[in-house]
Design a binder for these strands. Sequence first.
RNA 1: GCCGCUAUCGUCUAGGGGUUAAGGACACUGCCCUCUCAAGGCAGAAACCCGGGUUCAAAUCCCGGUAGCGGCACCA
Length: 493
Amino acid sequence: MKEVRTRIAPSPTGYFHLGVARTALFNFLFAKKNKGKFILRIDDTDKKRSKKEYETDILKSLLWLGIFWDEGPVLKSTNAQTYDQKYLNFEKNYLGNYGPYRESERIEIYKKYLKELLDKNLAYFCFCKKEDLEAQKQAMIVAGQIPKYPGVCRKLSKKEALKRAEKEPFVIRLKVPSKKISFTDLLRGKIEFDLDLIGDFVISKGFEEPLYNFTTVVDDYEMKISHIIRGEDHISNTPKQIILQEALGFSKPKYLHLPLILGEDKTKLSKRHGAISIKELKNLGYLPEAIVNYLALLGWWPKEDVEIFSLKELIELFEINQLQKHSAIFSFKKLDWINRAYIRKLPLEKLTELCQNYFEKEVDFNYLKKIVALFCERLSKISEIKELTNYFFKMPQYPKELLLWKNQSFNDVKKILEDVKKTFLKKEIYEFNKEKILENLKPLTEKYGNGFVFWPLRVALSGEKTSPPPQEIAEILGKEETLKRIEEAIKKI
RNA sequence: GCCGCUAUCGUCUAGGGGUUAAGGACACUGCCCUCUCAAGGCAGAAACCCGGGUUCAAAUCCCGGUAGCGGCACCA
């Protein structure tokens, strides 16, 4: 059997987003599952919209997600051990050679095939003005006709066309035959199109600006792509690409069109649906493992009913026949749940490092580590750490009413807090840890009741309605700061 | 408008002719645990788009309708 070779060919016209990431993931999985190769190509034929910054973002995002390509832009160094190191040091170490994997550097190849099509009379020069065609198209729509190129320049003699091409701007159109064409989609079965509905489409502007349908066919052939796995928004491009393959005498790859990811409003996921670029998700504190895991679950489901799996496990589990045919709505709620699962699995050291990025000031690593340990089960995304832990870094501000538990009076609270203070001042709890604190507080809770002691103490320490238990906060704050905050609360009353 | 794709709880999905009163997960609600939050445990509400056909039997197969989405560039 022929080697399995899949690819993604993103165009660098925006930050790498979830939809492309999912397509990349499935291409990657299919290749790995079949011991094949996954190829990355940069489709930057649109010079006006392509930006270097976006191109870099594609590579960085893919590396961060752990979706490594077997062929594609060459990285300068592979010393870094972790995805994160690769990500962080990217600009410095990894901008290497794109070689033949950037379309803008393949212009001579396209020219060769363009000339071949022209020579064989399968394509022709067109000198029609864009504005005129646009007007004609509108007229056809109004008249209830199929809007397609009427074929004016197709009738031009080759000699005349060649002559005009020397001084007039031109485009190159493919002669689309009149017949029905069909292909087998690996997921959807036979799909048929009537070519009479497609006009002679443009494959290149002049010789220097070849267009998508043409370049992609040439590149996929030259790169020996065996399976084209892409979004279903490309289904209607497929007949065009097949005619091109037939005209050029290329072998045909197999196709699989993935269902799309939709936003909450059931339309194709795009920028207006919020944070959908990998870069944004990273900044929000989603872990790459969680994103990959969730993306796999959108449109695919493992045979065994497991929901949390690593990329490595995913390669094992992945089967093409478990793919869904219909589009799926992207839900941040489920992503949050999966992210929480991965945050909890992260070693404390590592999680603390990630949390540190969300504090603008330098914070003591060991102090933060203790705090993170307390919150690792409470985070849906890492960015939440800052907001949840303010009171560990400054004296909390809160209205004194917050100190009251149930129908407690201010006098009662004052008395209880003074008792707590006295307890903490006893020297036998100089080891100020949560177990000891709880143990020493026991006579008080037995006397007053849990809520009447823990609630005001917790508020005194945190200033919040909700927080981890007071003994845990106290341990981190230390005896001195804890006493200070209790005194502060007493003063308030 | 034309062409194409799709259709199971709010969402992601399992099931693909007969013990399925359609299973799981997220979200939601209630209870337990509990000073609050989180986590955990238990329980609950919640779906086969509609119509016809095939069949002893249809959520499942076929046809039609409807709806949703995607595409109709000198973008990719």
